[in-house]
Design a protein around this nucleic acid. Structure first.
Lengths: 187, 187, 187, 187
DNA sequence: TATGAATGAGCTTTCATTCAT
DNA sequence: AATGAATGAAAGCTCATTCAT
């Protein structure tokens, strides 16, 4: 059943984040997932395939969260704010996913193809930034640059709120964070 | 002599970045550093101590670059610009160091104490941001938040320029990047 | 199957006696046992667990020999003689077991718990000595003391006969040895 | 100076008993003895030479204790009693020496020649037993057998008193122990 | 005589992967 | 589809010994 496959992926996410990729034996994953070692390799031929599959799974999952309630927003600013706030919520609600990307986005275990496929999940957000640039609502500079800067700034905000969790409940602080974001990218 | 120790650290940096921590045998480090395996463990009792020592060494090295020519700048804006540009230069001149932080800043191999000690290296920059906040030259919000956002934004810029190296020579693009940075943090 | 486990234990006994614990690589044990090194650690998590398990196994084995034909003996004296003679036979028939105890009974590799568990194997003999003390057939002194003295004396006899093997076939010499034993403990 | 050599031997005795031969690095011996590793190898070319030297040193030391006050005794019985009691005192006053022999008498680290040389230290005691046998004060059986049995019995007694230290102060118990010894060997 | 940095062979243990059931 | 005993290459680390000072 798909049940076991899901359990393996879920357990892997937890363990890879807690212990690192090479410090997590497949035998431990199998054990904590409640399956036999052979079963793990029945679903994922190699450990590398496992983490690459996981990478895309988590990326999909993340994008659902980041784009939640996005189509209801009318202006570019409203959309960007929705993405910003969604990002913070995601980081708080799915801490393992967020840590997973922190650790593995730049790791050599994720191959080039997987990384590219993961990038495509951002198309929707990319399009919004592109439109914003063309209409001068956002800075009229390279979309790629704006995208990377926006992402970097969001990562910085997430880091801050993770280190100062009490402020995540404070509306004013959240607004301030968004303001730096908006000031950075607005046209 | 310190010679061998330095060689081991230098070789480790290169290999950890190229192959990842667990995928780099200590035997290979020793071999490429031109020393015996025993010598590596003579200087670093464990492989983990090696990477933690390296982390601090690289952080020290990086801070020299980031704060270069900083005291000559008079205004807060000039100082922040210097830091921003220094960061990009560092990322281009010392790519191994930059990749090292990308991969290991969030890894479980670096222990809490080392991470804290590494943070202290940022004090000088932290102080500038604090002063800027107090004098309303920068946004008058939590120094920590401003610091993390600034850092995140710089990381985003670095990522962009690394993926589009041709633009690193383009003054206008660099100015645009700095502008997003300055708009984000200015008061 | 239990087959491999048994082979590993049997080979360990031989090699530990021949070469000493630390001078016997696990790789050699595995090789001579005809299994992979991984298999050895599949059954015994550590080398220390291996020797501790072996210690109890050999002790069990030894007790079967020492108490052989014991229940057929009616008097305390007959029982003690049976034990004495069984001990000598065991030392001659199972030289590896005897050498194993000579070398490892006092070694730091055998942990306290194992030693205690090993001691319990002697209960049957202990009971006979206790009964003998109470009924004045044996010296009416502490059972523990009588037990240790008996054991020490047997070890001395074994040592003598091992160094003078020709006398082990000589009935009179055997009787003389038993006589010292009996004189020492009799009431 | 001989000072360092003595310190190395003394430290070795302690560490070999506490940790076992192979589990005691020469570097640790040097460290605890307060000398450099090179110094250790200046005095003892190999680790094996070190333990063999130690073996004879300890044996000498032990014989002084065992034969203390021996010449004042007139009868064979008095002499044997003196040896018996001296043995117990030695075991209590020099526990490291006693544990050393328990562990290393049968170990493969001590070579044949050293063992033989060690045996010669017993000549004086051997002679007493021989004389006792000839004069029928002791059992008129092979001196070697009597010697080994006596030694085994003493070892048993030591073991008992080590496990029941409170009785070592008890005169009656000591007398009982000697009585088993004397009954075993007397003619 | 004394030092201790340097060596590298060799150790125990791990772990991704296979395969007979 | 699922199991888990078995594998063996490879890892991190140790340690007796050397040698230039």
């Amino acid at each position: 059943m798909k049940d076991k496959k899901e359990k393996i992926l879920k357990t892997s996410l937890k363990l890879f984040v807690e212990r690192g990729f090479h410090n997590t034996p497949t035998s431990l994953i199998a054990k904590e997932a409640g399956v036999a070692t052979g079963t793990l390799f029945h679903y994922f031929n190699t450990k590398e395939l496992l983490i690459n599959t996981l990478y895309l799974e988590v990326k999909d999952n993340m994008m659902v969260d980041l784009t939640s309630n996005l189509d209801n927003q009318e202006t570019i600013k409203a959309k960007m704010k929705q993405i910003f706030m969604n990002s913070l919520s995601w980081a708080f609600n799915k801490p393992e996913q967020q840590l997973f990307f922190m650790q593995y986005s730049h790791s050599p275990f994720i191959d080039q193809l997987t990384r590219q496929q993961g990038m495509q999940r951002f198309n929707k957000i990319f399009d919004i930034i592109e439109e914003g640039g063309k209409t001068d609502v956002l800075k009229n500079i390279s979309t790629e640059m704006l995208f990377e800067i926006a992402q970097g700034l969001i990562n910085g905000s997430i880091k801050y709120f993770k280190e100062n969790k009490e402020y995540f409940e404070n509306k004013e602080t959240l607004e301030n964070a968004f303001l730096t974001f908006w000031d950075a990218i607005k046209g």
